[in-house]
Design a protein around this nucleic acid. Structure first.
Lengths: 241, 241
DNA sequence: AGTTCGAATGAACGGTCGTTCACCGGAGGC
DNA sequence: GCCTCCGGTGAACGACCGTTCATTCGAACT
């Protein structure tokens, strides 16, 4: 015997659906406004107007203005946490796992450029716990890449190196796609970008005897200099390298 | 016959000296406060208090609040413009010039960490002309490094590559010292950091036949694997790699 | 039709801010 | 001593903001 509150579509479900709906209205509108104006020059009344709701309604669904910022950034943290491990799963080779994880990371940065920028720009406006959340997620994701770097070093695929620094470099270079988009966006696709950076970093690390095996990750002239270059250009869809 | 206004130490000189003095009081105090609070959460009254002057005096020497931000950032732009070319001068080899320029750039970032951070965080609060100034200076300095990369490629020292992207990478990795200082600062000195990043980037670019000649720039195991590693550790003064 | 409840509203509130300007004090000149 | 000028001061001003809450509206129930 189902009670009224446990029926599918009952009041709780309606309320939860409304909360989810209103929150996404608020978050999407906030992302648009913050992309243009930043956190500080976005007023809550402008946000309400953009979302098509009243100021009081905003406060029914978020605690305060900083909460809005946090919700926008949490979207990207969730995407990292989901998409990066997923891209790496089912792949046995550490270097291939690294490549898949890094390219996926770049893809998330591309899809959430505003959130990436906000995480850098507005870290001062986050609460302690909000900032801690951002940082610990980054450490966690960096750790996934570092683990593969370590495995590749142990397998002799990569030369010995400071893998923690390399992992941080990769994450930072992924962020560069958003932070320096004024410089990069008109020059290449995010996929070409990710492959170029991966090739550059790995090119300095890879054991000489492994270059041919991973030539598809290096994307720099190697033994098959001319063909690899022509192939890379085709893949980038005309992006200049 | 010198007129009163042209005498050394005349009223204009006194006024100019006072302006310079007051401005530096304001800029130094602002840098301190913005490091902790950011631009938005620093009030002009707090700035006046920190500088030990009145609010009205602040406005005698700066036009408005944004002007303060611009003055802080202009300090670092001036330092780049002066120190990077200077570090590169008198060196004939393109790769050595590149190394000197990049390490100098890292040094400037280290000395002006607040300004580096502010340039990223507060670009939204700059006027059009202020932002244009920041961006064009960055393009200019990146261009110095790119020119050396191009020269090294032409000399056959480096393999063919997208030198514009590599130049941007180097500049961005220099900024990383400030942006990710929470991760890096306790692990290595800025010099060790600069050398590690330079070695990583160049390691992926350098022609195999040139590795031995530039082993001091690569700082990765090469032909003299064990000695190079021991030397690098000594140079870093205990920094872990 | 009347009542109740929940969601939405937007004016009001209290606070903070960037900027201005009337006033003051000190130094220099006569 | 008196006057003028310049630099400094900080309260006042006007604007804007984040947040709250008294009120209204609409839907559902009796």
């Amino acid at each position: 015997m189902m009670t009224p509150s446990s029926r599918p579509g009952g009041p709780e479900a309606i309320k939860a659906a409304r909360t989810t709906w209103r929150r996404s209205q608020i978050v999407e509108s906030a992302a648009r406004l913050m992309e243009e104006h930043g956190f500080h020059d976005m007023s809550v009344s402008a946000l309400a107007r953009e979302a098509g709701i009243s100021v009081g309604t905003v406060y029914q669904y978020v605690d305060n203005k900083e909460d809005v910022l946090l919700l926008v950034i949490e979207d990207i943290l969730k995407a990292y946490a989901q998409q990066v491990p997923q891209a790496m799963s089912g792949i046995a080779d550490p270097l291939e796992r690294l490549a898949a994880g890094f390219l996926s990371y770049c893809g998330v940065v591309d899809s959430y450029q505003t959130a990436t920028l906000l995480a850098y720009r507005e870290s001062r406006s986050l609460s302690r716990s909000g900032l801690h959340s951002v940082i610990s997620h980054e450490i966690e994701t960096t750790g996934l890449l570092v683990a593969e770097l370590d495995a590749a070093v142990a397998a002799g695929t990569l030369r010995t190196h400071d893998t923690a620094l390399v992992g941080s470099d990769l994450v930072f270079l992924a962020h560069m796609w958003a932070l320096k988009r004024w410089q990069l966006r008109d020059r290449m696709t995010v996929e070409a970008y990710g492959r170029a950076q991966l090739g550059l970093v790995l090119g300095g690390l890879i054991d000489a005897k492994q270059r041919e095996r991973y030539a598809h990750l290096l994307a720099v002239p190697g033994a098959a200099s001319a063909p690899a270059r022509a192939a890379a250009r085709t893949r980038a869809g005309g992006g200049r390298r």
